[in-house]
Amino acid sequence: MNVLLVYAHPEPKSLNGSLKDFTVKRLEAAGHQVQVSDLYAMDWKASLDADDSFGRPADARFDPSQDSKRAFKEGRQRQDIVLEQEKLLWADTVILQFPLWWFSMPAILKGWVERVYAYGFAYGVGEHSDARWGDRYGEGTLAGKRAMLIVTTGGWESHYSPRGINGPIDDVLFPIQHGVLFYPGFDVLPPFVIYRTSRMDEARFSATCEALGQRLDDLWETAPIAFRAQNSGAYDIPQLTLRDEIAAGQMGFAAHVSQAAHSL
C-alpha cells in the first residue's frame, strides 16, 4: 500500500520526530511504500494568497476560492501545491501527524490544507442541486482512501475525557476529522493520541511505540469512524440538516456519527 505521512513539527529531535521515524520504519518493514511531507523541513509556505496561481493580472482582486478554481482548472497552480496533490492521489492512506497546539493543528499544517485542497480538487466538486449538494462528506476526490491522525498533547487524558475541562477529544478533533478528512471523501480511522507528553520516559515511549505499531499494522482492518454520509439520505437537501427521525433530540458533533454503526 502507499502511505503519505504529512508531518508538522519543527524539531527533528522531539517526541514527534521520533514517532515519525518509527512510523516510517514500521510501515516500510511491512512492505508499504511511504512518502513523507515534512512541512517544516520543506519550508512549506503556509499562507494562501494571490501568489499561489500564475498568470493572473497584477491588479486583479484576489478571491481565494475563485482564484483557486481557475488555477486548478487551467493548470496554473504553484508547483509545490501540484506535488502535494499528486501525493494525495498516489496514497491509499494518509496520516496527519502533529502536536495539538491551541486545540488545533499547527499553522503550517493548516496552511498545507488551505493551499493543497484546491477548488475542484478537494471541494467544489460534483452536482449541486435539490437532490445532491456536491460530492463531499463521504464522497469526493479522495473517496476510497483512508486517513488517520497521530496527535500529541501535553494535557492529561482525563482533561480530554467526556467531562474533562478541555472537552472530549473526539469533539476537539471533529473539525479536522470530519471537516478536513471526511469532507473530501476519506474513510477516517479513530485517532492515535498520546497524552501528557512531558511525562514520556523510556518505558512509556516503548509502550507507546508498541501501541502505535499495532495501529499501523491494522490500518487496513480498523473500522472507520461512522460519520454520516451527506448524500446517503440522513440529511435534507439543500438545507443539509439531519432529518427529524435521525438522531432525534440529539445535537452537536455526536449527532453526525451513526451510533448504531459506531457500536459494532
Rank of each mutant, 00 (worst) to 15 (best):
R76Q: 08
Q66R: 11
A71W: 00
D63N: 14
Q66K: 08
R61Q: 11
R56E: 01
G75F: 11
G55Y: 02
F54Q: 07
F62H: 15
S47I: 12
R78I: 04
A58Q: 07
Q66C: 02
R76A: 04
A58K: 08
Q66I: 06
E74L: 15
D67N: 14
A71F: 08
F54G: 01
R61C: 05
E74V: 11
P57G: 06
K73P: 00
F54R: 05
G55A: 05
S65Y: 02
D67W: 15
F54S: 03
A50L: 01
A60G: 04
G55C: 06
P64W: 06
F54K: 12
F54I: 07
R61G: 05
G55H: 06
G75E: 07
A60C: 06
S53H: 02
K69S: 13
D59Y: 12
S53F: 01
F72A: 07
F62R: 04
A50P: 03
S53N: 00
F54W: 06
Q77R: 03
P64Y: 06
K73E: 05
K73W: 07
R56D: 02
F72M: 08
A50I: 00
D59H: 15
D52I: 01
D59I: 12
R78T: 05
R76E: 04
S65D: 07
Q77L: 14
L48G: 02
D49N: 13
D59R: 15
A58H: 00
G55D: 00
F62S: 10
